[in-house]
Amino acid sequence: MEEYQGVWVFIEQSEGEIAGVSLELLGAGRQLADKLEVPLAGVLLGEKVRELSTQVIGHGADIVYLIDDPVLKYYRTESYMKCVNNLALKYRPEIFLYGATPNGKDLASAVATDLSTGLTADTTMLDVDVEKRLLEASRPAFGGNIMATILCKKNRPQMATVRPKVMKALPFDGVRIGEVVEEMIELSEEDMRTKVLEIVKNVTKAASLADAHVIVCGGKGMGDLEGFELIHELADTIGASVGGTRDVIEAGWLPHELQIGQTGETVTPKIYFAIGLSGAIQHVVGMKNSELIIAINKDPNAPIFEAATYGIVGDAFEVVPKLIEQFKQIRVKQGGEVSYV
């Protein structure tokens, strides 16, 4: 196993733009690589993506493995997997991280199968046991009420997909020096069994949730669909986006794309209202990096108060209408709109 060395990050890009999670993983990967005293590499695939190497190096990589080919214009499991497999077999990384995005998870699952190695899904904490050179990939388990650390002791590379917005990217360093290793791939369009016909961007509400500066999230404590209206009302009043916990989505009070948590969206708004939700681990991992968290819950022991910046123990149906009223009064006094930027 000693011939496997180095930490790799798959650099996900779409139309020349690197996904945020890939830069976050370069930040996390840098720490792992430093602990293990090995280089950090980014794997960059696509068409006309050569110049993105500067960004990959500037955000912490020592090496960029680059394959630039028209057949890689769009992400497709088969073409990308073939490239990644070839690179991994040739250069043998010991750790290989991917963003837990639809494409990152798809690719990692296929690669793990072909390389016959272990893959941990949707990791939210990463560390290494330096002595044993073991990746410790932790994630919420069993519906998200507990964390499990997953190890891959005998197979290499040790692979994990990592949730977006839980790791921190390093600031761009324009003078960092790295090496670009360019490889070729023998793949022709005729060999491909799938074709991307069209990409439609930013049409789902989830995209707006991920970008929102203020989010009001409700839980099953809102009682029913009618009770949940209060969440919409507060959001409308302050110009926020609405999200819900898994229970809320399963009850059908909100569409799937507005779920916040481990199996939904991870969000990091500037202000996050958590109302009538207890704060199960699987929810908290999806919102705990928000800047200002305000929790309102009847139960003083609800775990959400541990994640909150400010907590109010109280009945949402009493507190929230008063909050809405306060904002409305400001609006009347100022003769204008209250809105968050």
């Binding site: 016959s116 190695t117 272990g118 893959l119 941990t120 904490m125 410790e136 388990a141 507990i146 964390m147 499990a148 650390t149 997953i150 190890l151 891959c152 002791k153 005998k154 197979n155 681990i281 908290v284 705990k288 968290i293 108060f305 541990e306 994640a307 909150a308 910046t309 400010y310 907590g311």
Partner: peptide, 16 residues
């Protein structure tokens, strides 16, 4: 290839 190393409740956040 994967095994569960340990199970734990995450480090408590400080709370506000």
């Amino acid at each position: 290839p994967t095994v569960v190393g340990k199970m734990f409740t995450p480090p408590k956040l400080e709370g506000g």
